[in-house]
Design a binder for these strands. Structure first.
Lengths: 249, 249
DNA sequence: GATTGCCAAAATGTCAGACATTTAATAGGC
DNA sequence: GCCTATTAAATGTCTGACATTTTGGCAATC
């Protein structure tokens, strides 16, 4: 695979890393494929070898590629990408053609983890956590339904879930909040695709978020876990991952 | 805080990064403290500026430090360290004086996550997953009790839990297996500290691991979750995090 | 004919020095 | 007293040369 079609360059080394990373995340190269040599990249983007090396260092640090002296650079298998690295999350946001497998993997994780997490948050949340949750929920409510504020709505959605991660008051859980942004952005693109009864779906999603907030506020671990389950089920339906079914719990 | 007391240098840039990272992880600098300048590091370790810069790039990528042109380098707050980065896990292993707060945070995460994870593994495990679990368990059994093989025993312990993470067949969960090694190594050091009735404790731990394996083998999600709970409770007692109590479930 | 040894080419890694850029502090002028 | 220009110090970048590692080819040898 060559570099044909990659637009010329317009920023520093970070921008170059971002550009290359997004091409990788979009599946432009297959795992095991050789990656372009440093000098080719220098020529193609008309930048110094330094910038190229800095960019490649980032890609190496996140596990996207592997470099060995003399042999060259190859693309690593997806299973070894550091999906939890904030850099990766950053690069994923705003990609319109993110690998659907990846989206499903991330969502599957959230589906299994967030109920437990909500339970944790219900027992550990403090005043400022509740404040963050309420602010995010208020923002979601305010920006719902209006196509103009769709991007903003997604940001509040991210903030809401991130507030739950933070409310766990655990350093490890907190790190995982980074996964939310790409996951939720993908949701938007996806739900834009199948433009079905969007209005009902949004109202439904909102009220379910509200029930999570309520449960956490009254320190109801059981209720928070259940409500989070409901939010995720709604989201799964909107993502087209599972079919709409009756409540299983 | 200066560089006094850091031994001279004996490897490449990776070794230097490791050395500095471990000093950071051990709490040698406080968050917000200024980090030594590039040229000081060059002088102290007698290496080129390139190696220093490469090492500092790693520390920056993992969120340990923050660098800004003109101002210098400062240590970032612990909450922003990328604990899920494999590099950090690598650096943490073998540290004898790891910050106890960090150990507790990581263990608290495992305590909340691994039961859910075990449930997942029970439904998703395939033949090779079971094989890995059995091999690790066999290794644990074989190396139990003998002080000579204590290190090996820990490795099998790590392999056992990592096999559970892998058995989830989810890319995100799988990444988190990296947290295990530092957590379990810390357990050893800790249990070496309070040398109490070690023998009973080991037997008990082994049999609990065995019950997790059994539950996963017969695809018993409920049982696996419960058994994992028991393993973690035993571990928590050995770590001195919680007192020994009657079964809560 | 298969193996070994050696050399050359290609790729990444490292070095050293100069220069650029950003930031903070400081001295002057009004 | 306040604003500005200067300076110093730190990180960032560029460049060219050199080092190291890997691969492949070629030839000599058994």
């Amino acid at each position: 695979m060559t570099l044909d079609g990659l637009a010329p360059h317009g920023g520093g080394a970070d921008a170059l890393a971002r550009r290359l990373a997004r091409a990788l995340l979009a599946g432009r190269w297959q795992p095991g494929d050789p990656f372009p040599k440093e000098l080719d990249l220098c020529a193609h983007f008309a930048v110094s070898r330094n910038q190229v090396r800095n960019a490649l260092t980032s890609l190496t640090a996140t596990g996207l590629i592997e470099r060995t002296a003399g042999r060259g650079t190859v693309v690593r298998p997806v299973a070894e990408w550091h999906l939890l690295d904030p850099l990766i999350s950053d690069w994923m946001t705003g990609i319109d053609s993110l690998d659907p497998t990846l989206v499903r993997e991330i969502f599957a994780f959230r589906y299994s983890a967030e109920p437990t997490l909500a339970r944790l948050a219900a027992t550990a949340a403090e005043a400022d956590d509740l404040q963050r949750l309420e602010a995010a929920f208020e923002g979601m409510t305010r920006t719902a339904g209006d196509p103009d504020t769709q991007g903003l709505h997604a940001e509040y959605d991210v903030a809401f879930h991130d507030a739950i991660y933070r409310a766990s008051h655990n350093l490890v859980w907190r790190q995982m909040g980074h996964l939310l942004r790409p996951s939720i952005i993908a949701l938007i693109h996806s739900s834009q695709a199948h433009v079905r009864e969007e209005h009902d779906s949004l109202d439904d999603s909102l009220s379910r978020h509200g029930r999570v907030l309520e449960a956490i506020r009254r320190r109801d671990a059981e209720g928070a876990e259940h409500a989070a389950c409901e939010v995720l089920r709604r989201t799964a339906i909107d993502l087209g991952i599972v079919a709409e079914t009756a409540d299983a719990h």
